[in-house]
């Protein structure tokens, strides 16, 4: 006997993606739960993000946005759940993914130069012992050019400002020449010029039919930058096109009391 149909289910935001959804998605997450100690940071999140789009992962501080991204990439262990990238297992899809970690996650006092960081993006191409060729250096320079950092190629990374550090990380991701770009707070603490430079690069990626997924915290720019949103606060609250999903109701459900209603009024929300 099948359980009775529940009316509540229709209103419930969380719904597992179907096998077709998973196959068609750029990044598909099923029942991802991650826990640090005894408190789940991410609880049973399902999502099937569309291909060739700009996706924002939005939620309050401590909502598990970065953790979700890291779990999707296998950087932090999952308690349960599975990940598919373009319908493939993560291990088989590594060449198709580029990851831009949070700036603060590395020690910028590390003894290396800007160009060397970008060259790290060729790791999968080079493997252990293949020689670095002139072509690689030229490609790395071209990536730096795209983020406006070509003049800094020979600099020690400790001499960069926060915005410059972020651009170098983006250049490294460009060097990977992936299909899915996952960025963790790329606009956090950067200057206006850097923000503009980064978003321009991301838009060219989208034009080149790539998929871009950003953990994002600035609600004021969501409607301008992204065409798809995933709202989470430990669990998934809502997911869908910005035009229909980035609503006051969903934001209130995501942020609760942490979002003043006056603030909501100033956002470019869909109704």
């Amino acid at each position: 006997m099948a359980p009775p149909k529940l009316e509540l289910a229709a209103e419930d935001g969380a719904r597992a993606p179907s096998p077709e959804d998973i196959a068609n998605a750029s990044l598909a997450l099923s029942e991802i739960t991650v826990s640090y100690g005894e408190k789940p940071a991410v609880f049973s999140v399902d999502a099937a993000l569309p291909r060739e789009s700009m996706v924002a992962i939005i939620g309050p501080n401590g909502a598990g946005k970065s953790t979700l991204l890291k779990a999707a990439l296998g950087i932090v262990p999952r308690l349960s759940g599975s990940v598919r990238i373009f319908g493939q297992e993560l291990e088989r899809a590594r060449d198709r993914v580029a990851y831009v970690p949070q700036r603060a996650s590395v020690d910028w006092d590390f003894p290396t130069r800007v160009i060397d960081v970008v060259l790290m993006g060729f790791y999968r191409e080079l493997g252990l012992l293949r020689f670095l060729r002139k072509g690689h250096r030229e490609r790395a320079r071209a990536c730096l050019e795209r983020v406006g950092m070509a003049d800094f190629a020979e600099r020690q990374i400790g001499q960069l400002s926060g915005g410059q550090q972020q651009r170098v990380f983006l250049a490294r991701a460009l060097a990977q020449d992936a299909e899915l770009y996952l960025l963790d707070e790329p606009f956090a603490g950067v200057d206006a010029a850097t923000e503009k430079a980064i978003i321009d690069v991301l838009h060219t990626l989208k034009t080149a039919r790539k998929t871009v997924v950003c953990v994002h915290h600035d609600l004021a720019t969501v409607a301008d930058y992204f065409d798809h949103v995933l709202l989470i606060n430990v669990r998934k609250v809502a997911e869908g096109p910005t035009s229909t999903t980035f609503t006051a109701k969903n934001l209130q459900a995501t942020y609760g009391g942490r979002l003043a209603s006056t603030h909501i009024d100033q956002l470019k929300l869909s109704s």
Partner: peptide, 21 residues
């Protein structure tokens, strides 16, 4: 569903931060 509504009704951290699944 109750948690969803609770987050909208109660504008304080204790409620919205209490949810962990």
């Amino acid at each position: 569903r109750r948690w969803d509504v609770a987050r909208q009704m109660h504008q304080d951290e204790g409620v919205s931060g209490g949810y962990d699944g």
